[in-house]
Design a protein around this nucleic acid. Structure first.
Length: 280
DNA sequence: CGATGCCCCTGAGAGC
DNA sequence: TGCTCTCAGGGGCATC
């Protein structure tokens, strides 16, 4: 998403902003749109699952998509997003009842934030205080950075009695891994999701580090995983769901042809998919 | 301190 | 057709 938004946001000025519904998980401040208008985006970056647009007034726009959020880009004069009925348009651009924020930049482009379940958030935080903000202060290292290594995992998981799967979802351990990629990484590393975090051997933690990086790199290159709501910013589906080895594959034979069957279990309220034969 | 369950919300699909 | 139930890329909070 960050890569898709970069060409129409970074270095560009916000010429218009408006909010529709403002009662998301974290409600927008009343003057949210006014504070955005006229600002230039100095840098568009990402930390964990947060998209960050550093503005030219010392504030940073923080975006989280929650479960069902997405961003879409509409270029004036370009073809409509695939599958959008002609009738549902505002300013000549597709609009649904779940479009909560519309931002226009001088790219020129219109950027729409859509979130049916409204678990997402958008807020403005002083750029200087970003690192100390409660959303960011306790986040673990970026999985694609060199900080994620067997040695790091060994240290941070020491004494942790939680299952390794749950530890991977803990954003204080590693920042940015979600349910799909936790399952896929554990499968590739042949580690049981039920194994207690502290009991995973150093050797396996090495395999896990590499698996996490590989899965995330591949998924990003594929445009993400389109299960329900996710689409790329151009409206096209991501492709990584076609490459799942275990996620959503309960009852199917293990892709390694080990003869095992993919099982679905529930851990800490989330579905986990794994091969009991490969991952022990 | 850390683990667990519940909750926020809407929509899709299955089963009856 | 319509009801009820379960499930979904996340994470904050109360409760043990």
């Amino acid at each position: 998403m960050r890569r898709g938004l970069q060409p129409v946001l970074e270095g560009h000025r916000i010429v218009h902003a408006e909010t529709r519904r403002t009662d998301l998980r974290v409600p927008f401040p009343a003057n949210f749109a006014r504070r955005l208008k006229g600002r230039r985006v100095k840098r568009l970056w990402r930390r964990a699952k947060y998209l960050l647009a550093e503005l030219d007034n010392g504030e940073t726009l923080v975006v989280h998509l929650g479960m069902s959020g997405r961003m879409s880009v509409h270029i004036p004069g370009a073809r409509r997003e695939p599958g959008v009925p002609r009738s549902h348009t505002v300013h000549g651009v597709a609009s649904s009842r779940h479009d909560h924020v519309i931002i226009e930049t001088d790219a020129p482009a219109q950027i729409v934030f859509t979130d049916p379940r409204r678990f997402g958030l958008m807020m403005l935080i002083d750029t200087e205080a970003l690192g100390a903000h409660p959303l960011f202060a306790a986040l673990g290292p970026e999985p694609l950075s060199q900080k994620l290594s067997a040695v790091y995992l060994n240290a941070v998981l020491k004494g942790k009695k939680t299952p390794i799967k749950s530890a991977l979802l803990d954003q204080r351990v590693i920042a940015g891994i979600g349910n799909i990629y936790a399952c896929e990484a554990l499968f590739r590393a042949r580690i049981s999701p039920k194994r207690l975090a502290a009991n995973v051997r150093l050797r396996s933690l090495g395999a896990l580090s590499l698996s996490i990086k590989a899965v995330l790199r591949e998924a990003i290159a594929a445009g993400g995983s389109s299960l329900r709501d996710h689409k790329r910013v151009d409206g096209n589906l991501g492709d990584f769901q076609h490459s799942f080895a275990v996620y959503g594959q309960g009852g199917q034979p293990c892709p390694t042809c080990c003869g095992g069957t993919i099982r679905r279990i529930r851990q800490a309220g989330r579905s986990t998919f794994f091969c009991p034969k490969c991952q022990s």
